[in-house]
Structure formats: structure tokens, C-alpha cells
Design a binder for these strands. Structure first.
Lengths: 227, 227
DNA sequence: TCTATTTAAGAACATTGTTCGTGCCAACCA
DNA sequence: TGGTTGGCACGAACAATGTTCTTAAATAGA
């Protein structure tokens, strides 16, 4: 018959080399986000990369929201949690945060999904648990430690989201607002912006990663004041 | 004729009580976000609230992204910036951050637009300028002050976004994850989550606003270590 | 061998942002 | 006063999105 090709067959894994599984969907989705950004992650895009239609995905994934949650879980599963050490807990917590940052930045824009995900996910909980243990090992009292881990993950998420959005804007149209361009704009500001004009150099200095380290250390140093 | 009603007329402000202006669009859009959340803010929704079609908006607003930027600008215009006072700068910076927080939380979800907006907007720059001046008045060195204001606005944005998203989830289906429900879930966790289980009380304690104040003070206290 | 359950897939629906013509009114110019 | 022009409003339509309904096929079990 006309539609006797392997691709046209129906039924479970009919003529398909690899059947559609949840893992295959996650892997394909991550590849798309890595290459084209989170905005390009649509059900149709995933389906077409799997050489099928969008409806076929809904047998394995309840929602796009559900897919997002699975992606974040996969990412969180990739961060290594060191056993808390009271002597090196500062380096440890920074290392964990940096791992999360690297994972999120590798998949541009996915931090938007991370912010929306409910914190009851198993893998995100595992990461929170690890961070809480490290801060507790630093001798911080439990209430402060709990709220601090919360603040830290929120900041990491926000940093990655902002960075991804800025990069996306930079990719579109020549919006690559270079440092020189920013300095020129600040210099052209009216005198109602005295501080911005005077400290334009400081405002535009430093890479994104340097600012990340700065803020993390700022928060951790704040802890020192309340042991 | 049949279509001789005032609403059916064409041309600029034909038979219309209020002509379509940028301000009218902004006001209508803010009303929608305030009542129904940012997710409900569509061009069609704004147009229909203005009793017209979606195409009519594009004569005054280039984009939805442009509309978002206008909304954020309007919100930023509403925050009062006190003249920097070296004696009360801590209260001042907290006050400004709390004002932004209140503005954003009044319009649920709009912080998503705030994160995407380029920081070259006039009104957002005005707020940044005000915050920078206050931190500088605290005797903080310019480089630290610049990066700190950055970190502070990023945190405020992220906090509001997270709060809005959580509230939205709570509105849908009975997902109102109460504190008791959370405590029960933490208690049911396996023993691989010792810290989370032991300090479930601390993890779930405190209102969102209390956590907000905590984190702000944490960051500001961190400043004290490097005057 | 026959039946039932699971899985793949086509087609379609409701929404979204956005654009293309097409009128219509108001103001300007001679 | 009469004709022209420019800007504004709008209906219709297009492409893309998430999601569901229905159908068909293949496998597992009796």
C-alpha cells in the first residue's frame, strides 16, 4: 500500500528504532534547549525531533509543565553534593551554587522553568538538603540556615534567568550592548543622575561571573555577623 | 443603516468617548494584571477592555514587549526615592526595596516582565540611581555599592516573581500547600534527607515578607564586613 | 486464535502575537 | 470652499502554541 513505510506505521514502537520513552523525551528536550534556548522548547519541536506528532508525547508526559519539572529534576540530579565539612563549608556552598549556575547557563532560559517548579520535587529537594547540611556545618543556627539556603537558590535562579534573557536580547538584532556603549549612554545622561554618571565605570565593570561570586560572598559574609 | 451605531464608526476617535492613547492602554493593562494576573495580559484582552480589536493597539504600541516595558516604567515611576541620608541609609534602602516589592506584588506576575526589560529604561534607571545614592551615603565603596544595588534589585525581582508564581499555583486546583501539608511531606521523607526532616519547622516557618526582610538584612549586613 | 490494553498518530480546536488592506475622519492648502 | 493628504481604527487573516478527540495498530494474555 501507499503508507506502508516504517514511519507511517501505527502502534507501540512500530518500525521505530527507538521507542518513545520519558527518558528519550527528556534527552531530546535538553538538546533543543542547549542548542536553541528555552523559548524554542515547544511540544511540537520535541515531537518533530523524535520524528512524530505532538500528540504522541502526551502518552508519556502529562503536560508541558510536567516536562519542565522533569528537565529541572534531571539538571538537579547532575549536581554533586559534598559531605558537609565544617572547615571548608564556605567553599562547599559556593561550589554547589556554581554547579547549579553552570547547569542552568548551559541550557539558556531554563531557569524560568526552575522558578515555576514546585519545591516538592525529589531532585530539587535533594539539592536543598545538601545545601542546608553545608550551611548547618558552618555553625549557623537552623532558622538562619534554612532561610539562607532559600535565599541562595532564589538568587542563583534569578541570576541565571537574567543572564539568559540578556544573552537572548544580545543575540537578536545587534543589541550587543557592549561596555563602551553602556558607558557612552551613562555619560549622556542628564544631571539628575549624578551617581550613575560618576560611577559609570564601577556600574559596568566586572563579568557576570564576577558579580555572581561577589553576591554569593556578600550573603555568606552577612552570615558571619550572627553566627 | 444597520451599522450606524457610534461604536461601528471608523476613523480617529469616531463616536468614542475616550480615544485610544498610550496612557489608556497602560492603565487598562495594569487593571487587568491587578485583577487577573500577568498571564491574563494579552493584547486581545486589553483591546476588548477598550472595546476594540487587537490591531488597533499596534498604532500606539510597537510590541507586547514594548507594552511590558511601559508597564514597568509606570510602576517604577511610583516609587519614592528619599534624599540619601548617611544616618538612616539602611532604613532608606529597605524602604525603597519594599516599595518595589509592594508595587510588583500588587500586579501579580509582572516581575517576569521586569526581569526581561533592558536596564536602559528611564524610570528603572531612576530607581537604580536612587538606590546607588543611598548605598553610597552609607559609606560603601563605589565598586561594592554598584554591585550591591544590582544584587538587591535582582533579588527583589526574583522574590516577587517566585511569590506570584506560587500564588498562581495556589489559586489553581486546591494546591494551597499549607504549612501543615508541607510539614507532613517533610516528615514522610526517607532518611536520606536528615537535615530537611530535622529542621522542617525552620524551613517552613515565617511569612514571605519575613523572609524578604531577612534576606535584605543579610545582604546589607554583609556590607558591614567591608565598609 | 481471539480479545483487551497500551501506544502511536492524524486531525482539529481554542488562544496567542502580529500584519495587511481598507476605510474613515480631521486638518491643511490653495 | 473644495480637494488632498496623513494618520488612526478596524476586520480579517496568518503562523505558531498547548492540548484533546478519535482512530488505528501492535503487543500481551487467555
Amino acid at each position: 500500500m501507499a503508507n506502508d513505510t516504517a514511519a507511517a506505521r501505527r502502534g507501540p514502537s512500530a518500525g521505530r528504532k527507538e521507542p518513545i520513552t520519558v527518558d528519550a523525551i527528556i534527552e531530546t528536550a535538553l538538546g533543543i534547549v542547549e542548542r536553541e534556548g528555552y523559548a524554542a522548547l515547544t511540544m511540537r519541536r520535541v515531537a518533530s525531533a523524535l520524528e512524530t506528532g505532538p500528540a504522541s508525547l502526551y502518552a508519556h508526559v502529562v503536560n508541558k509543565e510536567d516536562l519542565d519539572e522533569l528537565l529541572i529534576g534531571r539538571l538537579c540530579a547532575g549536581v554533586e553534593l559534598p559531605p558537609p565539612d565544617p572547615r571548608t563549608w564556605r567553599e562547599q556552598i559556593i561550589s554547589v551554587c556554581s554547579q547549579i549556575r553552570d547547569q542552568y547557563l548551559r541550557y539558556p532560559g531554563i531557569s524560568l522553568a526552575a522558578l515555576a517548579v514546585v519545591p516538592t520535587n525529589t531532585e530539587t529537594l535533594r539539592v536543598s538538603e545538601g545545601m542546608l547540611g553545608i550551611v548547618l556545618a558552618g555553625g549557623v543556627d537552623p532558622q538562619t540556615a534554612a532561610w539562607t539556603t532559600d535565599a541562595l537558590s532564589l538568587y542563583v535562579n534569578a541570576f541565571c534567568l537574567e543572564t539568559s534573557l540578556k544573552d537572548r536580547h544580545a543575540d537578536q538584532e545587534g543589541w550587543a550592548v557592549s561596555r563602551d556603549e553602556l558607558l557612552r549612554r551613562f555619560a549622556a545622561l542628564p544631571d539628575t543622575f549624578p551617581y550613575t554618571k560618576r560611577h559609570a565605570a564601577e556600574l559596568t565593570s566586572g563579568t557576570a561571573l564576577a558579580r555572581f561570586d561577589f553576591t554569593l560572598n556578600l550573603i555568606i559574609d552577612g552570615l558571619g555577623n550572627r553566627n
